[in-house]
């Protein structure tokens, strides 16, 4: 047990960085997801194609590969950014693709009459999407978005592979010094569980609060 208490500050710093990575990635992925989902249902063919290409390219290459490409590849073409920033941007873009697909399924679940009624009142396509369709779509996909949020949290651990000292990386460092893998990684695992439990609870609360009466 001493191995944990002796290294509380390292664990704490790692945990904090994991939380920061997760929250920034979630916020960014939600924005990216909404934009890409809107593109995928747009009446403009070029936008639809671009949205689809984005989702296909991002989803069909593993996140770890994207991280390695960004961290080691971008500097070669002159794009220099910190490891943390690079990791956030890559996770945002990657999770954004999954978020977009979840939101698109929500948009498809909104009855067509809602958008028709909005357009019949003189709202433009963009207005009807933003004011009528998306608010309803997002409420119906709270649960899948919650799952994506948990997946995002878990995926932040991959940032350890490119040198970001988040929780997994911090645990690894402590283990290199102490060689008590069971204690150290079980503790890290429990911390992840606690965080994902929080995300799950939040999802449940939001889902009840935003349920749409039909």
């Amino acid at each position: 047990m001493n191995v944990i208490t002796d290294h509380l500050s390292e664990f704490g710093d790692g945990l904090l960085l994991t939380v920061e990575l997760t929250l920034l990635s979630l916020a960014g992925a939600l924005v990216a997801g909404i934009v890409v989902a809107a593109m995928r249902v747009s009446p403009v063919r070029v936008l639809r194609a671009a949205g689809m290409a984005y989702v296909e390219v991002l989803q069909n290459i593993p996140l770890l590969v994207w991280l390695v490409i960004a961290v080691f590849g971008l500097p070669e073409i002159g794009v220099i950014a910190g490891l943390f920033t690079t990791s956030v941007v890559v996770i945002v873009l990657y999770q954004g693709a999954y978020t977009a697909e979840a939101i698109r399924s929500g948009i498809n679940a909104v009855p067509a009459g809602q958008g028709e009624a909005a357009r019949a009142l003189g709202l433009t396509f963009t207005q009807s999407l933003r004011l009528v369709v998306l608010p309803q779509a997002l409420r119906t996909v709270v649960q899948p978005l919650g799952n994506i949020a948990i997946m995002t949290l878990m995926n932040t651990a991959l940032a350890a592979a490119v040198g970001v000292v988040e929780l997994t990386s911090a645990a690894n460092r402590v283990n290199l010094a102490e060689a008590k893998p069971i204690w150290i990684f079980v503790t890290a695992g429990l911390a992840y569980m606690a965080l994902s439990g929080l995300l799950g609870l939040t999802t449940g609360v939001l889902e009840r609060k935003w349920a749409i009466l039909r």
Binding site: P111, G113, Q114, A117, A120, G122, L213
Partner: peptide, 15 residues
């Protein structure tokens, strides 16, 4: 369209 009102079979009020 803003000048032409429309009423639908299924009401289509914003839920």
């Amino acid at each position: 369209r803003a000048d032409v009102g429309m009423v639908f079979q299924s009401f289509n009020l914003f839920q």
